[in-house]
Nucleic acid binder design. Structure first.
Length: 682
DNA sequence: CGGTTAGGGGTTTTT
DNA sequence: CCCCTAACCG
């Protein structure tokens, strides 16, 4: 049984009576085992599995915990436990009464937001201050949703009172943005929780206990979600020293005021560390002690065996650092899978990845950047999104931007035209148009200036005659759009052919198979592989292009494989957005940002680019959200990922950007650099 | 000249 | 990937 494997302090927490329980679990103290033990305890006490809700920070973490329980309880039992991230759980619940939820990537919604913003003419609004950019307002609005339960204007004006004169315009933009999302059926990550909070009563939940992992990183919105559930029993596990999501509204008060909000709460503290050897732990403690203590705690060493002290590596140049570390990894005896290179900023990853590859050392980077954000995959997902939700103008635009001579503006007009031809239905308008004239279009012009609804000059189909097009296609009303050229029309024809073939399909796998072998995709693959094989001279390397094509089709088959376990298009696409970047391709040395390393552990860890400015990231600290304490927690999280060996490294100079660096102050706090020695050096 | 498309350069962390 | 700018079109 999982319970019998717990130590005393873990057992005490796991077997706490129902009620409000807070577990302060420092790095490496067996947080996961304790949560697994807690669920085992609940099940043994007769709590029905479907009345247990487990909220984690990644879906992978939830999956692993459920899998561990699966070794002791029947599949039917553990399968009934509701588990996942806040977002995944909200999605599941939301789907029940709002079946057509189309989850959209933040970048996508930002584009939508910007297009609404750009229609406004701020010059007409008298104000002392320059209006904020669309991106900034979008980011602030998103942060607001995560961190405040009041109104946007009062939250925002508290920070920027001088923008009062512009507030009405900002609110107007936000309003239209919300309406447009509604119209297209779009939902953001935040909306998943916001909407669920609103409909909580209709869900008629009767949970007996809610468990929250990584409680220190819950934000105000998630806190409200937990409150709305109104579970009679809470089991919240966290460590304020590992709170690193302030930029996402993480509210450390959720953990620090727990005992005030629940006066009869019990607090358990786990301090026995089983992960890291003593010198690593004492280094971590030395640094984190500089932050204020919220609940008292001192980490105790569980692993007493002899150990090597953490090593500081100093290099003259940034790439010398990457190369040397790669060589060191190659010469060492630790399995590649047990090694992690951890950095503050993603920009460090490319250099390390390249250095490892040069030596033939396999590596993997967590997340979608490599797979789900690849354009060849995004294209296919956009296609599926559009088929499932033909109102998705964003997906349509992204698809059509691959057509030669088609940009976002023409793509938008084509979308509106096709919808018009089909009397509101994109697919009808494309395959069997009933209306034959171009609609009045509303181009991206300043609404406030009164410019709108231009009549388009009608282009004649005769401009395509003699170019080898079928008479059938030339009778389609889309050819009347004056800015559509021959290449654009060819693209449309391929789109139409594919749409005809997949219109009636529901299985993601079958749709994908047809899409991948279509001539539309062939076009996209040609464009992409051509771009990737382009030499500096502008010539295309045929060999490189062929290689690139193969890679693209290999990725596409991987997506095809992933799709086979889904029966419904919408679910597949949403699942890819919700959990897609938790998948990582390949195997080998792990390359991770500090944020991505949360909750993981490795035998050997390299924390790189420990230069003042980069880690701590001074640029972020000067913006809202971040501060030195948060950066220190990030350092703490990074070093406590190490079990046996810890290397901390920095470079003095960046030869590409011609920048000199000083070592991170955390190295001094860790006792690895003496201040006097360092100042003598400079 | 305005609007649009295409391509080059710098980059902050996640569900 | 987002922003900026150069080329291009009508």
């Amino acid at each position: 049984m999982p319970l019998s494997q717990l130590n005393e302090e873990q057992f005490a927490a796991a077997s706490a009576p129902l009620g409000y329980n807070l577990v302060i679990a420092s790095a490496g103290t067996g947080k996961t085992s304790t949560i697994v033990g807690r669920i085992a305890y609940l099940l043994k006490e007769g709590v029905p599995p479907e009345k247990i809700l487990l909220l984690t920070f990644t879906n992978k973490a939830a999956g692993e915990m459920i899998a561990r329980l699966g070794r002791y309880f029947p599949q039917k039992t553990v399968g009934a436990i509701e588990a996942g991230t806040f977002h995944a759980v909200c999605y599941r619940w939301l789907k029940k009464y709002r079946p057509s939820v189309a989850l959209k990537q933040p970048a996508e919604l930002k584009t939508l937001f910007r297009s609404i913003y750009e229609k406004r003419n701020f010059k007409r609004i008298p104000s002392d201050s320059e209006p904020f950019s669309a991106t900034f307002i979008y980011d602030m609005y998103s942060l607001y949703q995560n961190s405040s339960l009041g109104t946007f204007d009062s939250w925002f004006l508290q920070k920027y009172p001088e923008h009062e004169g512009l507030m009405d315009a900002y609110l107007d933009i936000i309003n239209e943005y919300e309406e447009t999302k509604e119209e297209y059926g779009f939902v953001s990550f935040n909306d998943l929780i916001v909407h669920t909070n609103k409909y909580m009563n209709e869900l008629e939940l009767s949970l007996e206990e809610v468990l929250v992992d990584e409680y220190q990183d819950t934000n105000t919105l998630q806190g409200a979600f937990i409150d709305e559930i109104a579970s009679p029993s809470l089991f919240c596990v966290g460590d304020y020293d590992q709170s690193i999501y302030a930029f996402n509204g993480a509210n450390i008060e959720n953990i620090s005021t727990f005992t005030e909000r629940y006066p009869d709460a019990r607090v358990y503290t786990l301090v026995k560390n089983y992960r890291s050897k003593a010198p690593i732990l004492s280094l971590a403690n030395r640094v984190i002690e500089k932050n204020p203590r919220i609940y008292p705690k001192t980490l105790e060493v569980g692993r007493k065996e002899s150990a090597k002290a953490p090593v500081l590596l100093v290099f003259d140049e940034l790439f010398t650092q990457y190369h040397s570390i790669a060589r060191k990894i190659g010469e060492g005896s630790t399995d590649y899978e047990d090694i992690a290179v951890i950095f503050r900023n993603n920009s460090s990853a490319d250099g390390i990845e390249a250095s490892l590859r040069e030596l033939g050392i396999p590596s993997r980077r967590k997340g979608g950047t490599s797979f789900f954000e690849a354009r060849e995959i995004k294209f296919l997902l956009d296609l599926l999104s559009l088929l499932h939700n033909p109102k998705d103008m964003m997906a349509f635009i992204h698809i059509f931007e691959y057509g030669n001579g088609i940009g976002s503006s023409l793509a938008k007009e084509l979308f509106q035209s096709l919808v018009h031809f089909g009397e509101g239905e994109l697919i009808d308008g494309t395959l069997r148009p009933t209306l034959n004239t171009l609609p009045k279009l509303n181009p991206n012009k300043n609404v406030q200036l009164g410019l709108f609804d231009d009549d388009l000059e009608v282009g004649s189909a005769s401009r395509f005659s003699g170019m080898g097009f079928d008479r059938d296609i030339l009778s389609h009303p889309v050819v009347k759009h004056p800015r559509l050229n021959a290449d654009g029309l060819r693209f449309f024809i391929d789109f139409r052919t594919l749409l005809e073939a997949i219109e009636k399909e529901e299985h993601p796998r079958r749709v994908l198979r047809k899409a991948i072998s279509s001539s539309l995709y062939e076009r996209v693959v040609n464009t992409l592989s051509g771009q990737r094989a382009k030499l500096k001279s502008g010539e295309i390397d045929r060999f490189k292009m062929e290689e690139s094509r193969e890679k693209i089709y290999a990725k596409a088959s991987l997506l095809l494989e992933l799709s086979s376990q889904y029966r419904e298009l919408g679910r597949f696409v949403n699942a890819m957005i919700l959990g897609g970047n938790e998948l990582s391709e390949g195997s080998g040395v792990n390359l991770l940002t500090v944020h991505a390393s949360k909750g993981l552990e490795f035998t050997e860890v390299y924390v790189v680019d420990l230069m003042d400015g980069r880690f701590p990231n001074r640029k972020l600290m000067s913006r809202s959200g971040g501060d030195m304490e948060e950066e220190r927690r990030l350092f703490y999280v990074a070093v406590t990922r190490a079990r046996d060996m810890l290397y901390l490294s920095y470079a003095k100079y960046d030869r590409v950007r011609k920048m000199d660096f000083k070592p991170s102050p955390f190295l001094e706090e860790a006792g690895l650099i003496e201040r006097a020695k360092e100042s003598a050096m400079i």
